[in-house]
Simulated scan of single mutants.
Amino acid sequence: MAILILIGSIISFLAFRVFYFLGLPVPEVIAKGITSEFFVFYAFYCFFKNQDKSIAFTRYGIKMLCGLSLAVIADIAINLHIPAGISVFLVMQIFYILAYQEFKPFSFKNFALTVVMSIVFLAGDQLSPFFNLKTLFLPIAIYTFFLAGAAIKSLDAILLPNKRARIVPAASLIFLASDFVLQFTLGDICDLPFAADQVVNNVCHVLYYAAQFMLAHSLSEDFIEE
């Protein structure tokens, strides 16, 4: 069943990429919405198939399922140009952070590193000749803070004795990379003359779906308690 879900997601992603290449009128909201639903199906499948779960891992799984489900809603909202879309993505990151709380309580070190990473990213955008954030600076700054916070908090999984836990920080960092690439696809704030929009868009989606499927797969085995 898991293999079928993964194959279905890959076929869906590639099919819609081909449709766009051929210039067929397929709405992005349908293409991305359908493909995104696969990682949610996979997450629920992994979570409920995994019968031997500790209480801590169950809490982790429920929060992760909420975050992944919100990701689909956010995908649809963004592609329908609904302003609340970025807010839904922000809440998704909050659920990821809450899920990572099961590894280790949030600390001042986590907060400090999050602030530093956010400042570095935002300063890079402000100083880059390719970006003009304008009135979007504040919402992007807020989202960047929670995105960085999730990436930093996920690193606590490295300290867990079960090596399977390392899939979580790997996924979170790939998600961070996907959002970094995403900003180069936003024509209203970015002008990237040396790369085709469609190429950058495809790279962004590959990273995004890879990260979400890795987070979904993390629900397949309890790695929190030995």
Results as ranks from 00 to 15, higher is better:
residue 122 L to M: 13
residue 122 L to K: 03
residue 123 A to K: 01
residue 123 A to N: 12
residue 124 G to V: 08
residue 126 Q to L: 15
residue 126 Q to A: 14
residue 127 L to T: 12
residue 128 S to R: 12
residue 129 P to W: 03
residue 129 P to S: 07
residue 130 F to N: 15
residue 130 F to A: 10
residue 130 F to R: 10
residue 131 F to D: 02
residue 132 N to Y: 09
residue 132 N to E: 11
residue 134 K to M: 14
residue 135 T to N: 08
residue 136 L to H: 11
residue 136 L to E: 05
residue 136 L to N: 11
residue 137 F to S: 03
residue 138 L to Y: 11
residue 139 P to G: 10
residue 139 P to A: 09
residue 139 P to M: 11
residue 140 I to L: 13
residue 140 I to R: 08
residue 140 I to M: 03
residue 141 A to N: 09
residue 142 I to Y: 08
residue 143 Y to K: 03
residue 144 T to V: 13
residue 144 T to C: 14
residue 146 F to A: 12
residue 147 L to P: 02
residue 147 L to M: 14
residue 147 L to C: 02
residue 148 A to R: 00
residue 148 A to H: 03
residue 148 A to I: 09
residue 149 G to S: 10
residue 149 G to A: 07
residue 149 G to W: 02
residue 149 G to V: 09
residue 149 G to D: 03
residue 149 G to I: 07
residue 151 A to K: 02
residue 152 I to Q: 04
residue 152 I to H: 01
residue 153 K to R: 09
residue 154 S to I: 03
residue 155 L to Q: 10
residue 157 A to D: 09
residue 157 A to S: 07
residue 158 I to V: 14
residue 158 I to S: 00
residue 158 I to H: 05
residue 159 L to C: 10
residue 160 L to P: 02
residue 164 R to H: 15
residue 164 R to L: 11
residue 164 R to E: 15
residue 165 A to L: 07
residue 166 R to M: 11
residue 166 R to Q: 11
residue 167 I to F: 07
residue 168 V to D: 00
residue 169 P to M: 07
residue 171 A to I: 12
residue 172 S to H: 04
